[in-house]
Design a protein around this nucleic acid. Structure first.
Length: 505
RNA sequence: GGCGCAUUGGUGUAGUUGGUCAACACGCCGCCCUCUCAAGGCGGAGAUCACGAGUUCGAGCCUCGUAUGCGCUACCA
């Protein structure tokens, strides 16, 4: 029976890379009737926040990744972790290190590590030469009893190699001499990551560890801990990383909100679309189909299809049209225009609500109209946001006229100021008022007036929707309806607006 | 510095045991459709498969080396 877990640390909003790790774990579990668990790794008390725990839970919910059993909070297990350390101490698999703690500021850690490693290499320092490594247990107990401060380190055997077969990266092995006696327990009594992960995975009965490639080399240390505990090792599968456009690490600090999953929810992504996109980052299904439902993803998912090379996630914050990866945007548009309207409707409802454009009638008397409208306008939308922005005129009389549209479709032809009210008059008499009848009326009128139909069509589009682009105009007439259409055709608002704007300058 | 991993058009990827013009998607350009913009259909530009050697009749696929990128190297996770 397969048991996997998603184990994020709650130190910020849910990162899209983490979200992908969660997805893969979920798909793996669901594809083989396994169990998918959630564990919050909040051992770093300074950095862990409740807000980010909430963000993780909300993010998983948004993606539709349900977890089985209760959420495990790693900090709840600290006592058990300490007990395990005591056991290792007694077994001689670990030792107390009474060396005073070295203080280092967070900002310079990376540089400091490399520096120290270089120095050690130059001096030929043995990884296992800690002066307290061979201290007798009685002596160690005595000093600890006397109140001396200590950290506990794993006593890595001198001879041997760790070995495991990663489901993605294949055979991995490392000589013990290259692995330092890692700290298991801090001098303040806090268990450290590598220890906690192993202990919790054992306790939760995890059979397969699927996580980011940044843990690939940590795995050797963890295997050593499994061995010290006389416990069998789970299967491992490491996932390639998701990189920023400059091929650097994708980080919240450097790249801002594009890396946060909640951004996609807040900026109008359809969960299924983003999930689909995420699934294709680092994994390829058999065949050429890329638009896949959750069921299809689940059916096709396998560890064999996971890549070894990191993937670049493209985005350009400065460009509203490409604020996130083009393919993600395309996929979202694809979902928006092809999913059943009945599934789309609730999402648009939420969007309209947020924009104060929602009316209860859309779910009652005007339900049919509402769904028809969505079906009409969704064809050229990329995100849910577009329904309340570009689509505003369909749901409210209070909308703006796009300046470029006004110039292009209205101002170029002065006669429109007379033609449009006249057209409105014709439209008022059309009965019934449909796409067909409004088209007939408009074309007849353009013949009469001696102007091209296109002129009136485009002008009408701007008058009725405020925009230069949109669906077939006669469909729009029908959707907007006779009353509103007539009123908008008669309105001089675009001209006033334009003059106002000139006045401002 | 050490260790590990990776390297196919701008991006995501496909390339079965080495053997036809290196395939697909996004993006880009053009044409068709057309009342606009999309969508859709059709077509196009764009890769000497990081580089250099080697093995072979023949290498994107095998071997070695180099470079670049990324990861780990913490009493962070």
């Amino acid at each position: 029976m397969i048991r996997v877990r998603f184990a994020p640390s709650p130190t910020g909003y849910l990162h899209i890379g983490s979200a992908r790790t969660a997805l893969f774990n979920w798909l793996y579990a669901r594809s083989r009737g396994g169990t998918f668990l959630l564990r919050i790794e909040d051992t770093d008390l300074q950095r862990s926040t409740e807000a980010s725990t909430r963000s993780i839970i909300e993010g998983l919910e948004w993606l539709g990744l349900d977890y089985d059993e209760e959420i495990v909070f790693q900090s709840d297990n600290a006592d058990k972790h300490r007990a395990a350390v005591l056991y290792l101490l007694k077994e001689g698999k670990a030792y107390r290190d009474f060396t005073p703690k070295e203080e280092r500021s967070d900002a310079t850690v990376k540089a400091g590590i490399a520096e120290r490693a270089r120095a050690h290499a130059a001096e030929g320092v043995d990884q296992h030469s800690n002066p307290y490594r061979e201290l007798a247990l009685e002596e160690s107990n005595r000093r600890a009893g006397a109140g001396e401060s200590f950290a506990v380190r794993l006593k890595v055997p001198r001879e041997g190699r760790t070995h495991f077969v990663d489901a993605v990266y294949g055979e991995q092995s490392r000589d013990y001499s290259e692995i330092e006696d890692l700290v298991l327990l801090r001098s303040d009594g806090h268990p450290l990551y590598n220890l906690s992960v192993v202990l919790d995975d054992i306790e939760m009965g995890i059979t397969d560890v699927i996580r980011g490639q940044d843990h690939l080399t940590n795995t050797h240390k963890q295997i050593l801990i499994y061995e010290a505990l006389n416990h069998s090792v789970p299967r491992f599968a490491h996932l390639p990383l998701i990189l920023a456009p400059n091929k650097g690490k994708l980080s919240k600090r450097k790249h801002g909100e594009v890396v946060s999953l909640t951004t996609y929810r807040d900026r109008g992504f359809v969960p299924a679309a983003f999930r689909n996109f995420l699934a294709l980052l680092g994994w390829t299904p058999e065949g050429e189909q890329e638009i896949l439902t959750l069921e299809e993803l689940t059916r096709k998912f396998s560890l064999e299809g996971i890549h070894r090379s990191n993937a670049v996630f493209n985005f350009n914050e400065a460009d509203p049209r490409h604020w996130t990866d083009d393919k993600a945007l395309w996929m979202n548009a694809e979902y928006i225009r092809t999913m059943p309207v009945s599934e789309l409707a609730p999402m648009v409802k939420a969007e309209l609500r947020a924009g104060k454009l929602w009316r209860e009638e859309y779910e009652e008397d005007d339900r049919e109209w509402f769904e028809k409208t969505l079906d009409l306008i969704r064809q050229r939308y990329f995100t849910l946001k577009d329904f309340s922005a570009q689509g505003r005129a369909y749901f409210s009389d209070d909308f703006d006229y796009d300046e470029a549209a006004v110039k292009k479709n209205l101002l170029k032809e002065p006669r429109l100021q007379e033609l449009l009210p006249a057209l409105a008059q014709k439209m008022e008499a059309v009965e019934p008022f449909t796409a067909e009848t409004s088209e007939a009326a408009l074309r007849a009128f353009s013949d009469e007036a001696g102007v091209k139909a296109g002129l009136l069509i485009n002008a009408s589009r701007t008058m009725l929707t405020g925009q230069a682009v949109g669906p077939s105009m006669f469909e729009v007439f029908e959707i907007i309806g006779r009353m509103r259409s007539v009123r908008r055709l008669q309105s001089g608002a675009p001209w006033f607006d334009y003059l106002d704007r000139l006045g401002d300058v």
